[in-house]
Design a protein around this nucleic acid. Structure first.
Lengths: 205, 205
DNA sequence: TCACGACAATACGGTACCGTATGAATACGC
DNA sequence: GCGTATTCATACGGTACCGTATTGTCGTGA
């Protein structure tokens, strides 16, 4: 054994803090418990960070980076916007059950520093959704509406699946798949939803 | 002034606890702060409840009662199921911005006693939505899908509006109204959404 | 009317955490 | 290898809360 207990870096603490944040919200980012978990003492912590706030902030930065990276990686492969949208929604829904961490982070948005980061991430996602719906051919306001619907439905879904498993009648893996199918079809369906648009396929570049 | 400081009942404590629960989640249901807020001391609290858990439980009971009462009252007046659905969704969305309390209670569902109550309330709502969509003429699975979509969209909407005001591009009162219109239209629109259903209007009783 | 039970005030000990202080252990440039 | 900076351990004081104990006060019904 080279080092029975290697020394820790600020990054190690941020990583542990992010995990705690996803597990129990901002309240769970507590120095002393984290120190125990990392096999050290809080004396060490204050060598890396000025205070608890700084640690929370570092964890959030980590989360923001990964959230945007993940969003980008999903985008890369598929050229067709409709297929892209379809894939995005399907994948998001499939991972919904495991996303307790995202839900917990969002729940910590009562804390303003958390809210600022979460707001950025969410706004980016919604904007991206809007652009996809526009690329698929919906006019601006309709695209905004559908993006908002898709996004809020996603947020509500992870909230329900993570916190209240079994409460939705679509909770079994099979039923979820059918549900997602149905929602995607509805979201992509052209209809006179408020704008004078009824054209079935043709879209202007 | 008849009583500068009247004596308190268990109900007064439960009421205050419910407000705290809606304001800061289950963590905010703390006896000493509540005592201050009620103008008394915690010595009094333990005359009414065995411990903090019992108080949380009492507050949740209050919430559950009111939640179901509210749901019922919306139902009474309108006979036509489609109009009823329309009204329900519209009203829910309009109140979305103020529903921080519901969001906070839901966020406390990490606490299992809270989760049990919230699950009941949510299941009731979804079931009611399913029944409305069935009455409107959708077959069972399609009704389940649309109910789930409506409900998750609602949960996501209050979450976003309450915690991250301004993050959605439909946040101004006018824009919200347009959004709701659009969503209601989409949810009520007949389409081959996964079931062999393509008939445009006619529905069997 | 007055005793008893319901409510209230205060004090206490306990837990979990934050942040500081101080000194010891370790890594690393030279 | 030696000195300095980084990292770690421990002890301390402070805050916010839970729950108990003790004793005081009030209101109401027999």
């Amino acid at each position: 054994m080279t080092s029975r207990r290697r020394r820790l870096s600020a990054h190690d603490w941020a990583e542990a803090a992010l995990e705690a944040l996803g597990t129990g919200g901002v309240a769970a980012v507590a120095i002393e418990p984290l120190a125990v978990r990392l096999g050290t003492t809080k004396g060490s912590f204050y060598a890396h960070y000025a205070n608890r706030e700084a640690l929370v902030s570092a964890a959030l930065t980590l989360w923001e980076q990964r959230s945007t990276e993940a969003a980008i990686s999903t985008l890369e492969t598929e050229p067709d916007p409709e297929a892209r949208l379809r894939r995005l929604l399907t994948q998001a829904a499939r991972r919904a059950g495991q996303n307790l961490s995202e839900t917990n982070i969002m729940a910590s948005a009562g804390h303003e520093p958390v809210a600022a980061v979460v707001r950025r991430v969410m706004q980016r996602r919604v904007q991206y959704l809007v652009s996809l719906f526009e690329q698929v051919g919906f006019p601006r306001t309709e695209a905004v509406h559908r993006a908002a619907l898709a996004h809020t439905a996603y947020v509500g879904l992870i909230e329900m699946m993570a916190r209240l498993p079994g409460a939705l009648p679509i909770d079994s893996p099979g039923a979820t798949a059918g549900y997602v199918e149905s929602v995607v079809a509805l979201l992509l369906h052209r209809t006179g939803g408020g704008d004078p648009q009824e054209k079935p396929e043709g879209l202007l570049p």
